[in-house]
Design a protein around this nucleic acid. Structure first.
Lengths: 335, 335
DNA sequence: TTGTACGCGTTATCAT
DNA sequence: ATGATAACGCGTACAA
């Protein structure tokens, strides 16, 4: 089924059919009805490949996410998907499992496909082959969650946000606060959050407890449990993200602590699910869907209005602490 | 940048360039090197639209999911994405927010794009305009999670699985078991699970408590709390999915029940996150990633080997009960 | 082993 | 308002 058959069926030229679909007001009402009827009869669907070839644009945006297993990224993806739908764009997502190799592979596929732009979350903007390729081929892109002076980014101020988490706990009366994090060098965000932790501790004039670093998320519970047995004086665990916080709560329970009575636990990301936990999760919320929306907006604005897309296009979105049941003032017995 | 320029740069014909990319072994080593060098110099990327137009296939599969907000579907999506990557396919996902309108819209976009097949989760296969369109246009598709005698499906036996959840609780000693569900008529799965509930109750010879139906997931906690205040004798809540179970646990706590001491709670879906909850979630696990993999396998097999794709291609995957901390024998005091 | 030439389905230009 | 026709970039007979 193609435009020619529809033209024949409707008794008009292909040009008219094309116009009926793309500029309905450039065709008389009578013929429009004729054409639409014919198209419906023949179940005609315009061929996007042909259109793309002709117009040289695909109305498609590539999306590169570390994983679908962390709600942070799917909430962001939802924001992207909704905005894309509103704007008439399609998205083509890939996951990278945090590996540089898959980052590069996926970008190659996206380029080959002819996406008009890419939204990506990389582990480290400083050494991303994917970003190099994007720049070499002059493909518009926006980094989400990352923050780097050399690239257009949409993110929150991770360092400041994390410092605020510490300040919040300090204000509650906690003095022995330990941070739980994935591999600190695995991503720029992990590093930024750790720096925020140190900053928060210093500003509150508290002792800097050793970082509880969890190499593999799968044995996070065990790892944290072990760490807690070594460090028996902490009254609060600030975690680098919400998924980690859930595991920290679990580890705390396994060590015989009640949350938040004996141990306060905080997360970072503000995933929707955190509010349905019992105890509900205190978290530093990022506007995940918004990060997705703004990333796509930036890209589309650049595509449609030729606005520049440089490092100074970057958007810093507000973070917001969501106090909830998993944190409270320390009980006196543990001091 | 196109194939002609590369041909000129390499001093060969376009056909040779095309061959070097598609059938490297059909070209002499010397010319291959020449061509590859030229392509690299010019940063040539083959144009997928042109290729698709010419070959009439896009190596792309459409995916239609209700939402990204439920890990069930993103776990499935992950399975699809991984399999697709292995098989050299790309995916183009849309979410439908459980509305028939968006189902249809998205399918139209996918067809227009020229996907070779579609994997979808619909609310009700019996009255899905999206399915009608797919059939009318002769587009291969597989339903995931749905189960219907008229379509190729990949799912579990929802009814039997749910009956087994009831049997498990009955064996633990529970006699007053209430079901918590979203709108029963919103999806075939909700209906099937409710039937499983009734079946399980009958087989265990227990009283059938009124269904706790939660119209809107957003006030699920309140709704369940109210219901629990009306029904004070239940000792177990079997929920239609894991997200609902998390909220049921919360509601139980708000009513002063300890889980599982005073109230056992079970979910359905087996989302990965359930294991990190405290208490960890007893759930009837579906092999979500597997459902994705098998759906895509079915589709690709049909595409590449012309195997038929009918209702009797359907695959029923095994479900598995995952007992965990949220369920236990009822305490005697509440009997 | 390599090259020539046609057509995939569409949009855009130019006539009418 | 409508029609004829030339591209868009590629793959693939077929010819050499």
């Amino acid at each position: 089924m193609n435009i020619r058959k529809v033209a024949k069926e409707a008794g008009v030229s292909v040009a008219t059919v094309s116009r009926t679909f793309n500029f309905p007001d450039k065709v008389s009402a009578a013929t429009r009805i004729k054409v639409e009827a014919a198209a419906a009869r023949l179940k005609y669907v315009p061929n996007a490949s042909a259109r793309n070839l002709r117009t040289q644009n695909t109305k498609t945006i590539g999306v590169l996410l570390p994983t679908f297993a962390n709600p942070v990224f799917t909430e962001c993806l939802q924001g992207i998907a909704e905005t894309a739908a509103e704007r008439g764009f399609s998205i083509m997502p890939f996951t990278t499992a945090y590996t540089l190799e898959q980052e590069l592979d996926s970008v190659k596929k996206l380029l080959n496909f002819g996406v008009e732009g890419v939204i990506l979350v990389v582990s480290n903007p400083k050494k991303s082959l994917a970003l190099d390729l994007l720049q070499a081929t002059n493909t518009p892109y926006v980094l989400a969650y990352n923050w780097d002076p050399d690239h257009p980014c949409v993110s929150v101020n991770n360092q400041q946000a994390f410092a605020e988490v510490v300040a919040y706990l300090a204000a509650l009366g906690h003095s022995r606060i330990a941070m739980v994090s994935g591999q600190r060098h695995a991503s720029d965000r992990a590093q930024q959050r750790y720096e925020g932790f140190v900053q928060g501790i210093e500003q509150a004039n508290l002792p800097l407890l050793p970082l509880i670093e969890v190499p593999f998320i799968d044995n996070a519970v065990e790892a944290i449990t072990h760490a807690l047995q070594a460090e028996r004086t902490a009254t609060a665990l600030v975690c680098s993200n919400d998924l980690m916080a859930m595991r920290a709560i679990r580890a705390a329970h396994l060590c015989g602590y009640q949350v938040p009575l004996d141990m306060s636990v905080t997360g970072f990301d503000g995933i929707r699910l955190g509010q349905d936990l019992t105890p509900s999760l205190t978290s530093m919320a990022q506007p995940n869907a918004s990060i997705g929306r703004h990333s796509l907006d930036l890209l589309i604005q650049h595509l449609t209005q030729q606005t520049p897309l440089h490092a100074d296009s970057s958007i810093l979105l507000p973070h917001q602490l969501q106090p909830a049941e998993s944190s409270a003032a320390p009980s006196h017995t543990t001091i």
